[in-house]
Amino acid sequence: MIHGKIDYSHYLLNIGIMFPSIFLLIFVSTYILPYVSAAWIALIVALFFLKQLVPRRYKQYVYPVAIMVFLLLVLNTLALELTQSILPILSELRITLSFGTMATITFALGLVTVAEGLISPKVIVTIGESFGSLVLLIEQLGIVAVMLTGNQVFLATESGVVSYLAGLGVYGPNPYIVAFITTVSLEAYALYNLLIFGYQFYLPLTVLSTPVDSIMPFIFMISAGSILISLYVKEKRNIASRLGMIGTAGIAGALVALPILLVSQEIASYGYQIFVIGLGVTILLIVVAITSRKVPANETINTSLK
């Protein structure tokens, strides 16, 4: 907002930055909305609106207070599992701790982070919210991918899966819960293998496909372009030289990143993809840290006059 007028270009760029998240949110919603708890989603989304309504000085406390209340409710529920001799009113504050609740909360958090990113006046907050929501929504995309390809397996081995989930405390599962548990288990197993044995075991979205696979690269390109434009758009000084610098950075970055990616793709079959990507990023961050050291003062040029 500048002088009471709405800065439409800013919000347009916000939409551009958040475009992958918005697209994925719409896509996964069509598959998972019938299975998630509407009450939980309404409650979490209400927090977003509550934050907009409270006075400015209290805005920053809405989410932390909500998290604290939620954690206290979890604590109360766990305490009730151990003992029943708690105040009667506390017994009323028991919440359902289940995979279904976790899945719903994950989805609702994605929804709220997308909304926060869209309305944020700061570009860096929008970018942060975009990446945060992307991670949550890619997780949901993985669940949908499992739902789309795994339901046949689920139906074929219904009795076996049902008994397995019953062992986990999940009774009468729906396809979303099955897919959620499957995806989370695969991720955890992949991480376990990576950390303990040093190789990749199974990455859900590498082998499973979704209808959006062909569109997503273009959507990511829109987001990347919007991020670079947003970071640059406030520039007023030395535009020509700065455009040159950002162009150089783009070309140099792509020239180094693409060969690393190609190498990582080539050796993915040996299980070294994450290793190559991790090594590339680590070296880059080390170079950033080394070059960011403070430049020493040139005492021979500028000496104190007094």
């Binding site: 991670v135 979205l205 696979d213 690269p217 950075a249």
Partner: peptide
């Protein structure tokens, strides 16, 4: 974001995050 995308094995997202990391990193290095 790259870690999340890599653990799920989503190549499009990996490409997106990896390229952005290098463009941003090289902007700072240059």
């Amino acid at each position: 974001g790259l870690m999340g995308a890599t653990l799920l094995g989503y190549s499009d997202a990996i490409l997106f995050f990896f390229l952005l990391i290098f463009i941003v990193g090289f902007d700072i290095i240059i």
